[in-house]
């Protein structure tokens, strides 16, 4: 029956999906192709592009700032994902157990979502005030440690300070996704494991984690792709400083493209960024699939 359905080609079907295909082509495929094309060209006055070969890529790879931004972006992205997951897992597990007071649990579930509702500039403003050299946080820190921490002014702490704000904004969404995943695990699996004598750690390791693998892969891929191109929060807080310690690849692209109007160069940065994200995500999915196959 399926074979028969496949053999019957319907032009009307193409008509139905045509709007979606045209839309996809116009807003995704065509711009991607143009960015790739521009990366081999140079923008000249009067709105025209001239072929420049690999010049943009050569210039990009010989730029020290590019490598600094790549290094910072990887630290920022991996740090954000690790902390996002650790925090989201910890809180989701806490919220998933039975609480003596259901209202209190629901209140915390709602309250913990609040950071996600803050826009990036609002979060930057809020944490900018908290991070002030003589601000609220430093008042407490000074009383405990005897000396304040220059969160945004010290090259040792600046990247981790902005990374934390990114985590603070991101983790509630991940927490909710994990919580949803945890609640969808059939309880009879835990009951059966309990009868077999499995303790909490064993149940977590052998039931919870395997059941959550697909969801975790989706979360990690999305978190990686969105954090790697993160811009607004860090731009508002530090603009890459001090001493370029928080300079990300997205700043490099923005400055070359939108401030210097070097569209060819910015396109090359965009292409490289897309390739890095695709390679990392592809490698992760490949390893994940291989492991799943091995388990099967």
């Amino acid at each position: 029956m399926l074979e028969g359905y496949k053999d019957k080609f319907e032009w009307r079907g193409i008509l139905f999906i045509a709007p979606a295909i045209i839309f996809l082509f116009l807003v995704v495929i065509y711009p991607l192709f143009k960015v790739f094309q521009y990366s081999f060209q140079e923008y000249s006055p009067h709105h025209s592009f001239v072929f420049a070969g690999l010049k943009q890529y050569q210039s990009l790879f010989s730029n020290e700032l590019f490598w600094i931004s790549i290094k910072n972006t990887f630290i920022f992205t991996i740090g954000t994902i690790v902390l996002d997951l650790a925090l989201a897992w910890g809180i989701a597990l806490l919220l998933n157990v039975k609480w003596p007071n259901l209202k209190a649990r629901n209140f915390f579930r709602g309250a913990l979502l609040l950071p996600f509702l803050f826009s990036a500039p609002a979060s930057a403003l809020l944490w900018g005030i908290l991070y002030q050299p003589l601000g609220f946080l430093n008042n407490i820190i000074e009383q405990i440690l005897g000396t304040p921490i220059n969160f945004l002014g010290d090259t040792r702490y600046a990247l981790f300070s902005v990374l934390w704000v990114s985590v603070w904004r991101n983790f509630p969404l991940i927490m909710i996704l994990i919580l949803g995943g945890l609640q969808s695990i059939p309880p009879n699996l835990y009951e059966a494991a309990g009868i077999d004598g499995a303790n909490r750690i064993q149940r977590f390791w052998h039931i919870t984690l395997p059941q959550m693998r697909s969801l975790m892969m989706t979360i990690i891929v999305i978190d990686f792709a969105t954090t790697f191109i993160h811009f607004d929060l860090v731009w508002t807080m530090t603009k890459g400083g001090p001493l370029r310690s928080t300079y990300l690849i997205s700043f490099f692209l923005y400055q070359r493209g939108m401030q210097a109007f070097k569209f060819g160069y910015a396109s090359a940065i965009g292409v490289i960024t897309a390739l890095i994200i695709s390679a990392c995500v592809g490698a992760y999915i490949f390893i994940y699939s291989k492991r799943m196959e091995a388990r099967a």
Binding site: Y131, P133, L134, N150, G153, G241, P242
Partner: peptide
């Protein structure tokens, strides 16, 4: 210069 240390000052922009 506010707030008395160089790393502290490096966090001060025009808005602050």
């Amino acid at each position: 210069v506010y707030p008395g240390t160089v790393p502290g000052a490096l966090a001060i922009g025009e808005k602050e």
